[in-house]
Design a protein around this nucleic acid. Sequence first.
DNA 1: CGGGAATATTCCAGTCAAGGAATATTATTG
DNA 2: CAATAATATTCCTTGACTGGAATATTCCCG
Lengths: 115, 115
Amino acid sequence: MNTTTLNALAEPRRLQMIELLRDGPLTVGEIADRLGLRQPQASKHLKILSESGLVEVRAEANRRIYRLRPEPLMEIDNWLESFRGMWEERFDRLSDYLKHLKKSGDSPNSKEEFE
Amino acid sequence: MNTTTLNALAEPRRLQMIELLRDGPLTVGEIADRLGLRQPQASKHLKILSESGLVEVRAEANRRIYRLRPEPLMEIDNWLESFRGMWEERFDRLSDYLKHLKKSGDSPNSKEEFE
DNA sequence: CGGGAATATTCCAGTCAAGGAATATTATTG
DNA sequence: CAATAATATTCCTTGACTGGAATATTCCCG
């Protein structure tokens, strides 16, 4: 997995921008308005998003229209694939745990040992 | 989405740790060894992973065994869900694009306008 | 060409995160 | 209890990131 994508997303404002752009392309000014940012900050964050490939720009007259690019998010999704097996394991363990409770009548202890 | 999870993953060493732990729990020393880190750095990074919930610790005698927790990764996966529609859109646009090429015989231009 | 709107860039100050080295802590063993 | 192994914590320094304010750039329009 690529760290630059995660790094770009790890900043609250930028994450908000990505979520905003999920519903369609937006202008710098619109983004700044909706997030309560000053324009320069918006531009700076958008630059980082752009450099990370999470966003692409189209110039239209005076304006710059930013649009979400799916590829980096797809890459994360793909990376998560290798962990999905774990979740099922966890589900198995949960059902084992429930069975255990039923059998022994112990009070549930959240600090119980794993493994 | 939660920024702290992304922040924890955005550091290369920590991301490597998560990938290491995908194959099972490990000791601090083992993690440090496999990643070529000094022990204090390993402990510091593991602390951050632990505080973000990506990892849990079990004390066994002298050792601390770190184990991956799936929940934060599941949360990311869940967050991505809201973007999955976009990918299909993109596929549609790609097939439109291919049709367009076939019809007009233009040379492919990677800088073509979106929308 | 001049003015104004939309956006980008620069400079600065404050804060935060990471590595290095040293030290503290905890548990084992004899 | 002393010695040692495994791990955590602290202190320090340095580099990176963020926001603010000011300024530069680009483009449209009359």
